[in-house]
Amino acid sequence: MARSSSFSITGIRQLQGKLKRNATLQDVKNILKLNGSELDRRMKRNAIFVKGYSIGDTKRSISLTMQDNGFTAKVAPTTNYSPFLEYGTRFMSAQPFVYPSFTVQKMKFLNDLTRVMK
């Protein structure tokens, strides 16, 4: 027997009204661009690996990409072995640099959005 699940979101109209009164979409784009660049810098600062052979390829591969007309900021390393550095393997311990950076920046991003909403 299949279970059906549903969800509902309340307050969308109030949110839209509040955004129309207080902020423009350009404000949101600016906040996103600022927080994306801060995340890029923070991630590069945290991408220092003390164990093993390190020449800085992962740090140099981290880049910020703006998508969806400025409504999406993507910051990520592009080396194919960066997940092994982040999560570790059975032969090496994890040296996380993406998640800690994201966790700190997420709080700043939410604070910035909250400030624009007031």
Rank of each mutant, 00 (worst) to 15 (best):
V116L: 15
I62T: 05
I48C: 00
M66P: 01
S5W: 12
I55V: 11
D27V: 05
T65M: 07
E86V: 06
G17R: 14
T58C: 06
S4E: 13
F71N: 04
Q67R: 15
N46P: 00
Q95H: 08
T10V: 07
N80P: 08
G56N: 02
G88W: 08
D68C: 01
N30K: 14
T65S: 15
K18W: 02
K29D: 13
Q16C: 01
Q105D: 04
D27Y: 10
N30A: 14
F7H: 13
G88K: 05
R115W: 02
I48K: 13
F109V: 03
Q105F: 04
V50Q: 12
D27T: 03
P96S: 12
E38V: 02
Q105R: 09
T79N: 06
T72Y: 11
Y99W: 12
G52L: 05
A23V: 09
S6A: 12
S4P: 00
R13H: 09
M43E: 06
S6Q: 09
Q26I: 00
F97S: 04
T79G: 05
D27W: 11
T89A: 06
F84H: 10
M1W: 07
A23R: 03
N111Y: 04
R21G: 03
M117K: 03
S93V: 08
E38W: 07
D68V: 03
D68E: 15
S37Q: 14
M107P: 00
G11T: 05
Q67K: 15
P83Y: 11
D57Q: 14
G70D: 09
T24C: 01
L32Y: 08
K106Y: 13
I62R: 05
L110N: 06
P83H: 09
G52V: 03
T79R: 04
T103C: 01
F102A: 14
V104N: 03
R115L: 01
L64S: 03
A73Y: 13
L19A: 08
M43F: 02
S61I: 05
V116A: 14
R3S: 06
S54P: 00
Q67D: 13
N111W: 02
A2T: 11
Q14T: 06
K51S: 14
M43V: 03
V104L: 04
S5L: 07
Y53W: 11
K51Q: 15
Y99L: 09
T24P: 01
V98C: 09
L15D: 03
L32C: 14
D112N: 15
Y87K: 10
G52I: 01
N80S: 14
R21Q: 10
